[in-house]
C-alpha cells in the first residue's frame, strides 16, 4: 500500500515549511546573494562570484580570529563540561537541599547577558572592583584593559560563570534519571565511586552530555556580548573573536559582501564541527570505533 497517495498530509506540514522558510531559509539565501556581489548602494551592485570567499579564506586577521575562537571554545568545553558534571554530582539528590541548590545554580542563567558583562567589568576593575582590586592588592597586576591574558581570563570567567549552570542542570537531570538499582548493583559488585562514575553515571549521561557539549560549543563559538562589553575586542585584537570581527566588517566598515561570505563560512564551520562532535559522541563509550 502506498502511504503517500493521500495528499492532504501536506497541508499539515506546509505551515512548518512556511515558518522555517521565512525565518531561516530566506534570510540565509539573502546572505548567500550578498556574498556573491559587491554592493555600493541599494541600486548599485556587481556580481563578483567567489571573490569574497577567497578573500575571507586568505584574510590573516580572520584566520587569527578563527584560531582564537577555536582556542576559546576548546577551553570553554574543557572547563565547563567537567566542572558542570562535578557540581551536579555534588548536589543533593532530594529534599530541600536539592531545590535550594537548583535555584542557586540556575541564578546566573536568569541574568541578561549585557548585565552580566557590566557586573563582571565592575567586579574585575583594577581600581574599584572587588576581584580586580583584591588581586592587585595581593601584588599581582591584573588589568583586563591592558593585558590580553587578563582580558581572556575575564571573558572566560564570565562565560564559565554564566553557562556552567546549564551544564549542571542538564547533568543533574541526567543523573536523577538513573534508577537507584544501578547504584545498589555497583555497591554489591564492590565498585569504587570512581568505577561507579566511569561505568554507570558517565555512560548514562552520554545523551545529555552530547546536548550540553553541542549547545556550549555552538554558543561559545558565537560569543559576542562579553568581549564586546568588556573591551570591544581588545586590548589590541586579543579578544576579537569571529563574531566581533564579523560585526566590525559588516557594521564598522559596511562591507556587506565580504561580511556575508564570512557569515556563510562561519555558519559552515559551526555546522561541520557540530556534526563531527555529534558523530564522535554518538559512538563514544559504546565500544564501537569511531
Amino acid at each position: 500500500m502506498n502511504k503517500w497517495n493521500d495528499n492532504k498530509a501536506w497541508f499539515m506540514v506546509i505551515p512548518v515549511f512556511l515558518v522555517v522558510a521565512v525565518s531561516a531559509i530566506l534570510p540565509l539565501m539573502t546572505v548567500v546573494n550578498y556574498s556573491l556581489q559587491d554592493i555600493f548602494s541599494p541600486t548599485q551592485r556587481i556580481f563578483v562570484g567567489t571573490e569574497w570567499y577567497r578573500d575571507a579564506l586568505t584574510d590573516p586577521r580572520l584566520q587569527e580570529a578563527f584560531g582564537r575562537q577555536m582556542l576559546f571554545s576548546g577551553l570553554v568545553l574543557l572547563i565547563e563540561i567537567p566542572l558542570g558534571i562535578l557540581i551536579a554530582l555534588m548536589m543533593p539528590k532530594k529534599g530541600w537541599g536539592a531545590s535550594l541548590s537548583l535555584v542557586l545554580v540556575a541564578l546566573p542563567l536568569l541574568i541578561p547577558w549585557n548585565v552580566i558583562g557590566t557586573i563582571w567589568i565592575i567586579f574585575t576593575r583594577p581600581d574599584i572592583g572587588l576581584f580586580g582590586a583584591a588581586i592587585n592588592h595581593l601584588g599581582l597586576v591584573f588589568d583586563h584593559t591592558a593585558s590580553p591574558l587578563d582580558a581572556w581570563i575575564t571573558v572566560m570567567l564570565m562565560e564559565v560563570w554564566h553557562w556552567t549552570p546549564l551544564v549542571v542542570l542538564l547533568a543533574y537531570a541526567g543523573l536523577q534519571a538513573i534508577p537507584e538499582a544501578y547504584f545498589h548493583a555497583a555497591k554489591i559488585d564492590g565498585a569504587s565511586s570512581w568505577a561507579t562514575f566511569r561505568y554507570i553515571q558517565l555512560p548514562k549521561l552520554r545523551g545529555v552530555l552530547t546536548i550540553a557539549i553541542l549547545l556550549r560549543f555552538m554558543d561559545s563559538f558565537l560569543i559576542y556580548a562579553e568581549p564586546f562589553v568588556l573591551t570591544g575586542g581588545g586590548p589590541g585584537n586579543a579578544t576579537t573573536f569571529l563574531s566581533i570581527y564579523l560585526v566590525k566588517i559588516a557594521v564598522g566598515q559596511f562591507d556587506l559582501g565580504p561580511a556575508a561570505a564570512f557569515s556563510i563560512i562561519y555558519f559552515l564551520i559551526i555546522l561541520l564541527i557540530s556534526w563531527l562532535f555529534y558523530q564522535v559522541l554518538l559512538k563514544a563509550g559504546t565500544g564501537e570505533k569511531s
Binding site: 534508577p179 538499582a181 544501578y182 545498589h184 548493583a185 561505568y199 554507570i200 558517565l202 555512560p203 548514562k204 563509550g285 559504546t286 565500544g287
Partner: peptide, 9 residues
C-alpha cells in the same frame, strides 16, 4: 533486580 541492570558501556 526488577530493572535490567547492566553496565551500559
Amino acid at each position: 533486580y526488577q530493572q535490567f541492570i547492566n553496565y551500559p558501556s
